[in-house]
């Protein structure tokens, strides 16, 4: 088990190096001279050259990539923001809690709503409830996030005046953003849970449980859910990891100072150190969450646990 974890953790390093290289090359090939973006289009050529020298842009790209990687692995130095002149990792640590809160709340709400409704839908297969839930899930999963968020603001903030539309002052500020993120995720979870439950529902051990006199509730909770939830856990984990990097639209619309917001602003201003550090941070988190999901399998499914021992 520990060997497996160590192997997975070590495998993160080459993936991370490749990620850094890809992001580095992409940022290099995007148009815009950071020196001109910082100093403005009217800046003198001398001032521009001096700044390019200071930022290291006169060095070959490969050399800068190696310098950057060396800085991360030896000094944990991700550089300074071109705009704010603050260490970028400080910026990320300030903005990350908002994104983390949004992702955690959203995945909890999505699971609480999506999984039980998926079970109900499967158990009452082809009933009116099933049809209504399936259609609603399809609808919610298809709605673009920005549109849903604006609809929610229109209804709850403008029309009813019960919820704030911007800021992070209180827990109420999180309701609409979390709803925007959670509803489509809940819809996806519902559909996957329903499909898994329907698969499990046909299995021999379910028929055996019923034949032995177990009531429906016991069959669902004791025998069906445990087996149906395996793929759902992966989806929940992936949703969580995806949400960490995918809250940007919601952060922009609801004025929340999260990581997505930070990275998007940095991309517009070609603040390369922030984009790099943000991407590295998010990809590392994604890989760690995926590792955790795999480990979680072991606790639920003994068959998976046995694979870890090999």
């Amino acid at each position: 088990m520990y060997k497996y974890i160590a192997r997975r953790l070590l495998s993160i390093i080459p993936i991370l190096l490749l990620t850094i290289f890809i992001v580095f090359v992409i940022l290099e090939s995007t148009p815009g001279d950071p020196a001109m973006i910082i100093l403005g289009r009217d800046a003198s050529p001398d001032a521009l050259n001096a700044l390019r020298e200071e930022l290291g842009f006169n060095k070959p790209m490969l050399l800068r990539y190696l310098d950057y990687v060396q800085g991360i692995f030896t000094r944990f130095d991700f550089g300074e923001s071109y705009r704010s002149k603050q260490p970028v990792f400080d910026n990320i640590l300030v903005q990350f809690p908002t994104t983390l809160k949004l992702a955690i709340f959203s995945v909890i709400v999505a699971s609480i709503v999506g999984i039980p409704l998926g079970i109900v839908s499967a158990v009452r297969q082809y009933s009116l409830t099933d049809v209504a839930l399936t259609v609603s899930a399809l609808f919610l999963a298809s709605i673009p996030g920005f549109w849903l968020s604006l609809l929610l603001v229109l209804f709850f903030s403008l029309l009813l005046g019960v919820l704030p539309s911007t800021g992070i002052d209180s827990w109420k500020n999180y309701i609409l953003p979390v709803a925007t993120l959670a509803l489509p995720s809940a819809a996806i979870l519902m559909r996957i849970t329903r499909a898994q439950m329907m698969e499990v529902w046909k299995q021999d051990y379910i028929r055996t449980a019923r034949a032995k006199g177990a009531n429906e509730w016991r069959v669902i909770t004791k025998h069906a859910i445990k087996n149906a939830l395996m793929p759902v856990i992966t989806i929940v984990g992936m949703s969580f990891a995806g949400l960490l990097g995918g809250t940007v639209i919601v952060e922009l619309i609801f004025g929340m100072p999260g990581l997505g917001n930070l990275i998007i602003s940095a991309i517009k201003l070609k603040d390369i150190p922030i984009v790099m550090a943000g991407t590295i941070f998010l990809s590392t988190l994604f890989m760690l969450i995926m590792l955790l999901v795999d480990l979680l399998y072991a606790f639920i499914d003994p068959r998976t646990k046995s694979q870890f021992k090999r």
Binding site: F146, S149, V153, P164, S165, T166, G167, L252, I253, G255
Partner: peptide, 17 residues
Amino acid sequence: KAPLDPSAAILSLQTGE
């Protein structure tokens, strides 16, 4: 306040925020 998406900004003005 820091800038918002234009559609959200106008709604915030309408809500009085």
